[in-house]
Simulated scan of single mutants.
Amino acid sequence: MRISHEFAAARAAAQHCQELTAHGMARGPRPEERAALLSAWRRDLARILAEDLSPLLSGDRLEVTVSEPESLSGKAALARIGPIAANALLRVGGLGGASGETALLTFDFATAIALTDRSFGGDGMLTASPPEQLPRSAALLAEEIAAIIAQAITRASLGDEAPPVGAMTSGEVIIRSESAARLKPFDPDAGAVLFTLDIANAEGCEWRCLLAVAADRMERLLPVPGRAQPHSGSRTLRPPASAAAAPFAAIPLPLHVVLAEVDLSLVRLQALTPGECIPLTMGRQVPLMLGDQPIAHGSIGTLEDRMAIRLTRFSAEGTAS
């Protein structure tokens, strides 16, 4: 015996047009939701930077503000940065094995030098005439700050989630160059968003840098609703900046010893000819100089058939520096 049944649908199956389905799947946050997420991202980024940059800048109590984004073309963003600056291409964000997004951070030379001065205990004031070439110490300091900002962007974007080891790509500096266009951070003909980061301390110093992101990548850097956001209690404390630690420890500093000094009149100087002898009086203690600054004194002698200086005392200014 064969028993068969015929089943009929209780009601017609729902049919959705392809346009409606595609629109629903591609829909992101509403404009008001995106504005709220962007505001939270800027607020969290400013708070994290105020905490994380402080040890690098002589322990200053910092106030950081992240401006509203300015929408412009990639070409206009590069023009705003200028042909020469301390630029760093950053990798930021990244979760679940994703490689993250790229962003461009830039300091003008005057700001990079002022921040370096402050990191070594100076006043950190901007100079009116910055050099045409960035000193190595300032370039290293700018890269260190760029790495801190890249990590701060990642934390602001991802919150305090604790994914498995290796699942999150920490913020980092990919490459740096004095030419922002050479880094190719975004398509010059496409849209970009530009943020101004203002950093200030209680002594009245203000430092400014620019953060530029391709417009189509900015959406992926905003925090996901419902994800725990960063808070100061969970951050990793950074040790205070030290001249004996990276990246400054490897910077070569040229020193010289002044054996004797002699005064000559302009008439005598103009009359000098090859073969003349000038008597020198060498003191018992000679200075060891760093530029024009004496950092120590010592006595002259020999060591393994070579002249040498035995250090006997350090100047008060040399010890402090």
Rank of each mutant, 00 (worst) to 15 (best):
K184Q: 03
I145E: 01
P83H: 04
R284E: 09
A9T: 11
S58L: 08
E6H: 09
P225N: 00
I175M: 11
R217L: 04
M282A: 15
S232H: 13
P287E: 05
A167E: 05
L57N: 02
T116W: 08
T116Q: 10
P225A: 02
I81A: 09
S179V: 13
S71P: 07
S4K: 12
L303T: 05
I309P: 03
I295R: 01
C205G: 12
L38Y: 06
F314I: 11
K75D: 14
F195R: 14
W207S: 08
E68A: 12
M307H: 08
L222Q: 04
F120S: 13
R30L: 11
A228L: 06
E161I: 10
A98M: 05
P274C: 13
R208T: 07
L57C: 03
L140M: 09
R80H: 07
P230E: 03
V213N: 08
M218A: 07
L62D: 06
R235A: 10
P239V: 03
A146R: 03
A244T: 15
P223Y: 08
A142K: 02
L140E: 06
T302D: 12
F248M: 12
P31W: 02
A316P: 09
I148R: 14
R284N: 15
D198A: 12
V64N: 05
S67L: 06
P135H: 08
I145F: 02
M282H: 07
L211E: 01
A76S: 12
I295Q: 00
A46W: 05
D189P: 04
A241C: 10
L280S: 12
L95V: 10
L210Y: 14
A10N: 09
Q293G: 01
D117S: 13
Q293E: 02
L141W: 03
R118C: 04
L210N: 11
I145M: 03
L134I: 14
S177E: 12
A181Y: 02
F195V: 09
L280D: 15
R91N: 01
F7D: 11
D108P: 09
E172S: 12
T169D: 13
K184D: 04
L45M: 02
D117N: 12
L221I: 04
V267D: 15
R208E: 07
G122Q: 06
S321I: 09
A22R: 11
E51Y: 12
L115T: 03
I48Q: 00
A146I: 03
P69I: 14
L53P: 01
E51S: 14
A156K: 00
V165K: 02
A36I: 08
T127F: 06
A320H: 11
R118V: 04
T169E: 14
L221S: 05
E203T: 06
L269E: 05
L255N: 13
P135C: 07
L290N: 10
L237R: 15
P69Y: 09
